[in-house]
Design a binder for these strands. Structure first.
Length: 283
DNA sequence: AACAAGACCTGCATGC
DNA sequence: TGCATGCAGGTCTTGT
């Protein structure tokens, strides 16, 4: 489900119901997520008050009143659901948290690629999972100079390098394809072959695509939704993702009815994952 | 060190 | 209808 815009959407949905609230009760229905929940997870989290809810890449971080941090990664299929009947749970509802207001917050994750962890106050750097993350693309630190330095010397395709969380924290398969389309850069280009002006353009496109996706609540492909149940809308604005064989929107705009055969969206596999792009205008 | 491929787990769409 | 296959928003591990 979630790349940066979807995780940010979840954060915004949870913030008003969690910040400055105490987590009264925690029920673990299944502890073996991608990684096993830490020892005594429920007991350690219950009774804690949430001071802040932030995001780092695709990680959700709840700062707790004891100085610790409750960390969640949604993996591929994780989601939070607010409210509803606490008794009407299905087999993929793995963790239930009830706030002091009596509001149930259910963590559901059919594939169990997601996980949760508790960091102690001492783990100021966020622990091993966060330590290697690159800069968040929506911060000023994610600059052309920063990205250029990380692309230099890398022979792998630019698409694969953008997915590297040490380079762009929060980038995922959809937005890597979409950002490269916006920038007019072919996903197959060796990362180190990008010129300075191409990197500058790409940085701007990454920020733009992610911001536009966040503005409409992310993309709902199968089951992403806001914690309150609303659907994201960005899938209606995809230019290339999941659009194999359809006309390239940029080529169609410039060529109209005379659209060439090569100006249709292609799908290729890179690193075992689908990449969508226009072979005609992405160079 | 960097890279590709495989592994993890479940559900769904497709085609026979 | 049933069954096999392939694919899915991620990342960790293994082997080259």
């Amino acid at each position: 489900m979630p790349e940066l815009p979807e995780v940010e959407t979840v954060r915004r949905g949870l913030a008003p119901v969690l910040i400055e609230k105490t987590i009264a009760r925690v029920v673990v229905r299944r502890p073996d997520l991608r990684f096993a929940l830490p020892h005594a997870f429920a007991d350690r989290l219950a009774g804690r008050r949430v001071r802040a809810l932030t995001r780092r890449g695709k990680f959700l971080l709840a700062a707790l009143d004891d100085g610790g941090t409750w960390l969640t990664h949604l993996g591929m299929s994780g989601c939070f659901r607010l409210g509803g009947d606490e008794r009407a749970l299905d087999r993929h509802d793995h963790v239930v948290m009830v706030t002091e207001d009596g509001l149930p917050l259910v963590y559901r994750d059919p594939r169990r690629f997601g996980f949760m962890d508790l960091l102690t106050a001492g783990e100021g750097d966020g622990g091993p999972r966060l330590r290697g993350l690159g800069r968040d693309p929506l911060t000023d630190g994610f600059s052309p100079a920063y990205l250029r330095a990380l692309l230099s010397g890398r022979a792998a395709p630019i698409k694969a390098v953008l997915l590297d969380q040490r380079v762009v924290a929060g980038m995922g398969n959809i937005y890597a394809s979409e950002s490269l389309f916006e920038a007019g850069i072919a996903p197959t280009r060796p990362a180190r072959s990008l010129k300075a002006d191409e990197v500058r353009l790409l940085v701007g496109c990454i920020k733009d695509v992610l911001a536009r996706a966040i503005a409409v609540g992310g993309a709902t492909l199968r089951d992403h939704r806001h914690p309150s149940g609303e659907l994201g809308c960005f899938q209606h604005e995809f230019s290339v993702y999941h659009r194999e064989g359809l006309p390239c929107p940029r080529c169609a705009a410039s060529e109209g009815l005379a659209l060439r055969d090569g100006a249709r969206i292609a799908r290729i596999a890179q690193g075992g994952r689908s990449t969508f792009y226009c072979p005609s205008c992405q160079r």
